[in-house]
């Protein structure tokens, strides 16, 4: 299974390399993978290649058409996926019973993992966004857009504006956006991603403004902690925040990784 996943990752990575190098790089990676001990390290090796930016010549970086297309795609993904998910999530979050509580918890946990994966994929296909929008503005682009769509959605469906919901959404977007901007400024990856994880929780608390398991204790023998963890894991606002935070932070970090440079004067050979 792991071997097959790694092979798929390597093949996907090779497809993004220039055609004349493709077979050679694939052979090299397969040889390295063969010599790598442990499934986890193999998986990390292959996944890193699959998630990396396509190899290209340094001079060929200005492609306004591609960057504009990425920005449009980014807009569609940021606005569309969360709203689609919110509609779908109504099907499994609007009821609770002893029979469903276990699988709902698993679906909630799975949704968080799916949000991370989706964030990685979406960031991978819209790397040109940071060529049009400064990385510092990516949190505003991401959460501002989401807030605008979230606010406008009821109006489009013919409902009137609910000020309470707008306030909740604003606090959610503001807290997530600010912490996302902070995470983007931190260079150390573990700390940066730690802030992202914190931001997902803080944005939730900013919106709900209270620690309340909403009566879920009845499903967990009256215990507060598992009930509250269940509420957190199944909170769709956390799922959406995770998706957007991973997406935005990856865009910022990738841009910095490729742009950070110290220009040194040419020296004759």
């Amino acid at each position: 299974m792991i071997k097959r996943i790694c092979s798929t990752f390597l093949t996907a990575a090779a497809r993004r390399w220039p055609e004349d190098l493709r077979d050679e790089m694939l052979a090299e990676w397969r040889a390295e993978l063969h010599a790598t001990p442990g499934n986890a390290r193999r998986l990390r090796y292959a996944a890193s290649l699959a998630a990396s930016r396509p190899h290209r010549e340094p001079a060929v970086v200005v492609r306004p058409g591609r960057n504009f297309a990425h920005a449009v795609l980014s807009l569609v993904l940021i606005a569309g996926l969360p709203m689609l998910y919110l509609q779908l999530a109504l099907g499994w979050t609007t009821f609770r019973s002893d029979d469903t509580i276990t699988w709902q918890a698993w679906v909630g946990a799975g949704s968080i993992v799916a949000a991370v994966v989706l964030g990685i994929i979406c960031a991978g296909v819209t790397t040109g966004v940071t060529q049009l929008i400064r990385p510092a503005f990516v949190p505003l682009w991401t959460f501002g857009l989401m807030f605008a769509v979230f606010t406008a959605w009821p109006l489009l469906e013919g409902f009137s504006l609910n000020r309470s919901h707008v306030g909740d959404g604003f606090r959610w977007a503001l807290s997530a956006g600010v912490l996302c901007a902070l995470a983007g400024r931190v260079r150390r990856a573990p700390l940066s991603w730690g802030i992202v994880a914190t931001a997902a929780l803080v944005s939730y608390w900013s919106a709900v403004t209270r620690f309340d398991p909403y009566g879920m204790e009845v499903f967990f023998g009256g215990e507060f902690l598992p009930a509250y963890l269940f509420v957190l894991v199944t909170a769709v606002s956390i799922h959406v925040a995770v998706f957007l935070l991973v997406y935005a932070n990856l865009l910022i970090r990738r841009h910095r990784a490729t742009q950070a440079q110290v220009v040194t004067p040419p020296v004759a050979a």
């Binding site: 990676w29 390295e32 292959a46 890193s48 290649l49 990396s52």
Partner: peptide, 11 residues
């Protein structure tokens, strides 16, 4: 990581 290293080696 491998995804950063190999493009550099290629360049």
């Amino acid at each position: 990581p491998s995804g950063t290293l190999y493009p550099i080696l290629a360049r």
